[in-house]
Amino acid sequence: MARKITIQHQLGFTLLAWFLGLLMFFPIFWMILTSFKTEIDAIASPPLVVFSVTLENYIEVLSRSNYLKFFSNSVIIAGGSTLLALVVAIPSAWAMAFSPTRHTKNVLMWMLSTKMMPPVGVLVPIYLSLKYMGLLDTRFGLTIIMMLINLPIIIWMLYTYFKEIPSEILEASRMDGAKLWQEIIFVLLPMALPGIASTMLLNIILAWNEAFWTLNLTAANAATLTAFIASYSSPEGLFWAKLSAASTMAIAPILILGWFSQKQLVTGLTFGAVK
């Protein structure tokens, strides 16, 4: 009797969860569907669920409008900023995890606090500085900015992962006469590889989707996909099917990366406070 109720409950919960999940996903689904419609079908009334599938939007977006340039800007800026940040963050996290001083905790907290600063608080000087240095609307300028924005999160995540590695192993390698760079590259990094991988993944996702600085510091040259999609907001840009095709291609890589990293995401986004 009790068992029967449990099965009914399970069925009820399953149906409810699937219904709500599909509802949450619907806007994305609808966008993907629209990307395969003609522009006329896209605004048909009532909305079409059955329609003749076309790839013309993808072909047109790819052949026109410098789409590939914006795409490669996104890849270079997200990837480049992540790698640069790792180069700075790995030594820093190593130092704080394996030879902490009495200031380490305060330093970590201070790093975290820089992340709390609202970007508008430094918008003016950053904009003017980049302008005077000729770095406004350049990929290099934006890569550096993006690296600095996410550096605190990267150091925190790496620190959390490094803390779980027993320091005896590092000491043993030191006893065996390993130099510091050998200790880091051959002993620490292989052990911390899963942690480093998920740190990279989270940072790529954050950098790819970043909108405040990319919208304010780029124009035609270094614009990423975030900024490119924003240009569709103008009234004359009412090409829904093409917008959908461009958007689908812009979100697809990150959506897939995100699905794989959802577990590590929790630790990363809460600075290790929720595990």
Partner: peptide, 18 residues
Amino acid sequence: RILFISPFFIMPTVSALI
């Protein structure tokens, strides 16, 4: 879970325009 988490990965300009 994947259905629920997906909106979080959509870039802000895309979700606003959808």
